[in-house]
Amino acid sequence: MPATDRQPNVRYMAGFFKRERDVLAAVREARRAGLQIHDVYTPFAVHGMDRAMGLRRSRLTWIAFVAGVMGLAAGLALQIWTSVYDWPLNVGGAPFNSFPLFIPVTFELTVLFSGLIAIGMLLIRNRLWLFSKRRVFDRVTDDLFVCVIKQSDAASDAEEAAKVFTRHGAIRVTEGDQFV
């Protein structure tokens, strides 16, 4: 989810929901009404939320792919360099370049690079790295769903957002940018 830095003079409206179904419906209607969804915070991945918010396809898959290729190359290079060129050892008469034996390590490094770099990039992009100052809404990691709408040019956006939220059973609507 795109997490931009907070901007001055922009109002943010947050609607708090008790049920997954309600927050999905609220997001859909807000989008239909032309409101700008800043982000939605949920305790777990809500199926269909990406489509409801109109998110673009994540580019993380490409990062994972490129990282995997890097891991593959690193794994092969490490083993071929050490056991074929730099320090060849005769192990039971097997050829120095025993390619099949390199596959397990290559596989593990591919997975390791791909996994770690993808996680790292994800945390950097959503600004949740270790010691990040970013705060979270209370209970949003527990049982609350929060939809935040960013005010665009129209002055009435905030009121419109509040209306959408209450219509879909929001238990609380607040304004503020301290969480954004």
Partner: peptide, 8 residues
């Protein structure tokens, strides 16, 4: 569908 996604 939406119903399945909303966990109905």
């Amino acid at each position: 569908s939406h119903e399945a996604e909303a966990g109905v």
